[in-house]
């Protein structure tokens, strides 16, 4: 009986949080138009969310591309199809790894920082202080961070993919001796702009919305103590990563699959 009660209570709490998260999202969206007048706030946040995630994204993209080049070469060379290395690297990056890995890195780097920052602002009464100064923290604090995240992730994912392709090129053409012309021409003839690149961009926009939403919500909803903020930060990384991977399957099935 007791555990059943607990289960019911847990489910109710989960639904309550889900509902709160959605109301929160609508409130943020309502706060977005006023941001157009406050571009400086947005720029400041793109800096801390996007620019500061740039280095990790570039380094990760480079290594992922190099690994793809190496692994792809080893597999393809058995079939004498190493000229298709460019296609393999580019498609893997543009369709999947670019949006997904960039989003996972983003959740770890920027998402956790957003949650911790907002949670601490709440814990140190900065948010209610703003409210008492007749400034809506949703508009002043949350909305710029949300929009900055949504705008930054697609750019980061594109940079990730581009750097990854160059990493693959460096390993494949530079080190393993794949023909340069074949590398690029096969890539160009097989990677479709609408099918592959735009779908990748759409994925990264969706991931950007979801990861940033989770991050700002967890921060705003955190229990305002140090333990509460640290739990919220962990939750951001876990939930955002799982959401990215789960949504990736759904989006892939919708875009490329024939399930």
């Amino acid at each position: 009986m007791n555990s059943l009660q607990q289960l019911g209570h847990g489910a109710l709490t989960a639904f309550q949080r889900l509902g709160r998260a959605h109301l929160f999202l609508f409130a943020i969206l309502a706060g977005l138009p006023s941001l157009l007048l406050r571009l400086r706030l947005l720029i400041q946040q793109i800096f801390s969310v996007g620019v500061l995630s740039l280095v990790i994204t570039v380094v990760a993209g480079l290594f992922v591309g190099m690994v793809l080049g190496l692994q792809g070469y080893n597999t393809l060379v058995d079939f004498g199809a190493e000229d298709s290395l460019g296609v393999m690297v580019a498609l893997s990056l543009v369709r999947e790894l670019g949006p997904v890995v960039a989003a996972l890195l983003f959740a770890g780097r920027a998402g956790s920082a957003l949650t911790a920052e907002i949670g601490l602002m709440k814990a140190t009464e900065q948010l209610s202080g703003m409210e008492m100064m007749a400034v809506d923290p949703l508009k002043r604090v949350i909305a710029p961070r949300f929009l900055a995240g949504v705008l930054s992730l697609p750019l980061l994912a594109a940079i990730f993919s581009a750097v990854g392709v160059m990493g693959g090129y460096f390993v494949g053409v530079g080190l393993l001796g794949v023909d340069e012309g074949a590398f690029w021409s096969q890539m160009q003839s097989r990677v479709d702009f609408d099918e592959d690149i735009m779908n990748g961009v759409i994925k990264s926009i969706v991931f950007g919305v979801v990861v940033t939403w989770i991050a700002v919500f967890e921060g705003y909803d955190a229990v305002p103590t140090s333990a509460g903020v640290s739990r919220a930060t962990t939750r951001t990384v876990v939930y955002a990563s799982l959401a990215v991977l789960g949504l990736d399957f759904v989006l892939t099935a919708l875009m490329f699959g024939e399930i």
Binding site: M121, T124, E125, M130, M132
Partner: peptide, 8 residues
């Protein structure tokens, strides 16, 4: 506020 609540 008790903590001052300055924007850090």
């Amino acid at each position: 506020f008790q903590s001052g609540a300055l924007l850090t």
